[in-house]
Design a binder for these strands. Structure first.
Length: 507
RNA sequence: GCCCGGUUCGUCUAGUGGUUAGGACGCCAGGUUUUCAACCUGGAGGUCACGGGUUCAAGUCCCGUACCGGGUGCCA
């Protein structure tokens, strides 16, 4: 039985890198008819951010990554919040102490810093708390047993450390990278239990993954260096380790490093799934949803960042991704995020949506603008604009003139379109239009083209300013479809307005 | 510093010893259109990080170097 988990910590909004980890876990579980579990790793009280857990849940729901077990949906292996499992960790860490794999340490943070400082000054290649240095520190190796007992009883703060064995070749296996070998001397006696009574990630994740019967741990590459420790922990408990797969990181579009929260606003693309309001500063960082991205596009973008099916297919539904996904085809190296291609993906998914789906998405935006419009009318607008839109908002930003008369005329376009005698031509055109009874696109096109030819004018001399009068700019859908939709009366008013406007501005 | 991982057009990538190194985004040009977008056609863009091997043959296997990324916390 395949059981995988996504295990974020609620220290802030979920980053799209995290969302991709969740996605790959989800795809893998569905592909293998397994279970997908959400576990909240809230063992760091200092960094806990209120609202972050709900944000994670909302984000997963938005992109449609439904989990089978989790803090809000329950399951047979709960609780799914690590802060609610403290007793479990205590029990298991005691087991490690009893069999010699863990020990007490009483060093203060200052003393630890002193030790590292000392080792740095000695130009020691490694500055670790391990078998070479723990003899100089305050722990249950150096202190007599009764003193350890006394210190604990007195309430002296202590941590529990892993007893990292000396000079051992540790061979671990990763599905994406294969065998990885590490010598234990480069590892340290990691803290398993903090003095605040909370376990560290290292302990909690092993205990939980085992107890929750996780079969595959799929997580970010930043965890690869601690895989040997985790491997040893399984050994210390006498448990069979799950399979591991470490996903490559998502990097900034330019420059160096992994994608971070600041990159988005700086470079004009979102890094968070949903809007996030910082509880301290009140600052709002825009999310994919609010930016106008479709959840299916976000899934598609993320899926192809570090994975590919080996075919030329690039546009996928979630079901196609499930069908084709495999960990073996995950890339080893980090992938730079490309905001331009992200837009393209959104456009592709937008084009694949039905008019009715687009209508549902666009209506709220219209209402937000204070526009009341008939659904049938809006649907027609959508049909005309569909091919030239990247985001749902574009139906408004590129089509507001369907709902209100142009407030102004794009100066650049106007300069090109509205010449000396344009007003006269438009006046005549208005006259002609007012006599046309059948205001259908087809008939308009035929009649107007005839008219232009009879007048011995060029199409562009007539149609470009007409478009300008209608829209306020000169780029848009098929002119005659637009005229039909707007209707005769409105068209005549807009022509009139334009003539007035340009006569006032001196033309 | 030390440890781990990585390295194919600007970007995402195909490629698992024998191909003119293929595709996509973006860019440029042409076609179509009254216009824009979409669409179609074409183009530019890669000394496969570099240097050594192994081999009749290497982007593909091995070693070294460089560079990039990650880790090195009583963070996850």
């Amino acid at each position: 039985m395949v059981r995988v988990r996504f295990a974020p910590s609620p220290t802030g909004p979920l980053h799209i890198g995290g969302l991709r980890t969740a996605l790959f876990n989800y795809l893998f579980s569905r592909k293998n008819n397994g279970k997908f579990i959400l576990r909240i790793e809230d063992t760091d009280q200092q960094r806990y951010v209120p609202g972050a857990e709900q944000y994670i849940i909302d984000s997963l729901n938005w992109v449609g990554l439904k989990y089978d077990e989790g803090p809000d949906v329950g399951g047979d292996f709960g609780p799914y919040r690590q802060s609610e499992r403290l007793d479990i960790y205590k029990k298991y860490v005691q087991q490690l102490i009893d069999n010699g794999w863990a020990y007490y340490a009483f060093d203060t943070p200052e003393e630890l810093e002193q030790m590292r400082q000392r080792l740095r000054e000695q130009k020691s290649p490694v500055q670790l708390y391990n078998h070479l240095t723990r003899g100089d520190m305050k722990n249950s190796f150096t202190l007599p047993e009764h003193e350890v007992k006394q210190l604990i009883e007195k309430g002296t703060p202590y941590v529990i450390r892993f007893n990292m064995p000396a000079n051992q070749e540790i061979v671990v296996y990763d599905i994406i990278r294969g065998e990885v070998k590490v010598n234990s001397d480069t590892l340290d006696d990691k803290i398993l239990f903090k003095s605040d009574g909370f376990p560290t990630y290292h302990l909690a994740n092993i205990v939980d993954d085992h107890l929750m019967q996780i079969s595959h741990v799929i997580r970010g590459e930043e965890w690869l260096p601690s895989l040997p420790l985790h491997w040893l922990l399984y050994k210390a408990f006498g448990w069979e380790p799950p399979k591991f797969a470490h996903l490559p990181l998502i990097l900034k579009p330019t420059g160096k490093g992994k994608l971070s929260k600041r990159d988005g606003d700086k470079m004009g693309f979102p890094v968070y799934p949903l809007d996030w309001k910082d509880p301290n500063t009140g600052e709002i960082i825009r999310g994919y949803r609010e930016w106008g991205y479709l959840p299916e596009a976000v899934v598609n973008i993320l899926a192809l960042l570090g994975w590919n099916p080996g075919t030329d297919q690039e546009i996928f539904t979630i079901d196609e991704l499930i069908e084709q996904f495999s960990l073996e085809r995950v890339q080893k190296h980090g992938a730079r995020f490309d905001p331009e291609k992200a837009k393209w993906f959104n456009q592709q998914h937008l084009k694949r949506k039905s008019d009715d789906e687009l209508l549902e998405l666009f209506m709220p935006i219209l209402e937000n603008q204070g526009i009341k419009a008939e659904r049938d009318y809006v649907k027609r607008v959508i049909q005309l604009l569909k091919e030239r839109v990247e985001f749902i908002e574009d139906f408004w930003t590129k089509g507001s003139y369907f709902f209100e008369r142009p407030k102004d005329y794009d100066p650049k376009a106007a300069k090109k379109a509205w010449k000396q005698n344009t007003s006269e031509i438009m006046l005549e055109l208005k006259d002609f239009l007012s006599q046309i009874q059948d205001f259908s696109s087809k008939n308009l096109e035929e009649q107007l083209k005839n008219w232009v030819e009879q007048k011995q004018l060029s199409f562009s001399k007539v149609f470009t300013p007409l478009r300008l009068a209608i829209q306020g700019n000169t780029a848009g859908p098929h002119l005659f479809d637009m005229l039909e939709l707007l209707g005769k009366q409105e068209v005549l008013i807009r022509i009139d307005n334009a003539i007035k406007h340009f006569s006032q501005s001196g033309k």
